[in-house]
């Protein structure tokens, strides 16, 4: 079959009828359904990834609520058990005048997940609704989120290490609370949400910022 009339000055693969295998990066004609090398399913643009990303993001946003409401650590010291949510943990640290740790904890456990969810929301909104956001700031934000996202696991890392190391029964004990699971899921889901998103859609959006982005449907 011959492709329909193609715009001549397009420098995108789709303009050239080419597509990239998502697995082995082989350049293929976009008419092919499967990669000739690795047999992966080829897609010219994965528009469903937007939905997936949205779903995951929303899930993460929902889980952010229990992650902050429920205690994330159950800390027992000399028979006295403390149930700390993320926030009370930070306030406790502030009470204890350990401000730097409190800042780090605040950043990693509260700021980063919120920023990440917020950032991703903005991107998804930008893709879905073509928000008028400058291409440059989107690119910067994207890199920041990607970089900062990995640090949000710090909190979980600390908890898991503490839970493993501090285990002296009634004397001194630390256990992850139910919020830890939720928090971990928030982090995981935002990561997955960022990963699953077909960033080409964003590039399309950035490209078509200059010209018309009328090609939203493709097989």
């Amino acid at each position: 079959m011959t492709s329909p009339a193609e715009p001549p000055r397009k420098n995108q693969g789709k303009d050239l009828g080419l597509t990239l295998c998502p697995s082995c990066q082989q350049l293929m004609a976009h008419k092919k359904t499967h990669c000739s090398r690795c047999g992966s399913t080829l897609a010219f643009r994965d528009y469903s990834s937007l939905q997936k990303s949205w779903a995951l993001l929303i899930t993460a946003a929902i889980l952010l609520i229990p992650a902050n409401i429920y205690p994330i650590t159950i800390f027992t010291s000399q028979g006295q058990t403390r149930h700390d949510t993320i926030f009370t943990g930070i306030t406790h640290l502030i009470d204890l005048d350990i401000l730097p740790i409190a800042v780090i904890l605040f950043t990693a456990s509260i700021l980063v997940p919120i920023l990440k969810i917020g950032g991703l929301t903005i991107y998804l909104l930008a893709i879905s609704f073509r928000l008028p956001i400058s291409k440059k700031s989107l690119m910067v934000g994207f890199h920041v989120i990607e970089w900062i996202g990995r640090w949000s696991m710090l909190d979980l890392f600390v908890i898991s290490i503490t839970a493993a190391v501090v285990n002296m029964g009634q004397l001194l004990d630390a256990k992850p609370g139910p919020a830890a699971t939720a928090f971990a899921l928030v982090i995981l889901l935002t990561q997955v949400a960022a990963k699953v998103l077909d960033t080409r859609l964003l590039w399309d959006r950035l490209e078509s910022k200059d010209d018309t982005n009328g090609n939203t449907k493709s097989s």
């Binding site: 779903a55 899930t59 609520i65």
Partner: peptide, 27 residues
């Protein structure tokens, strides 16, 4: 033969937030 792929309206991934909501409610 050309493969006619019907565009899915909803991806099953949407079950995930649903589950989260239910879970949240339940919790």
């Amino acid at each position: 033969t050309p493969k006619v792929v019907k565009k899915k309206l909803f991806s099953p991934i949407w079950l995930l937030p649903l589950v989260a909501i239910i879970l949240g409610f339940w919790l």
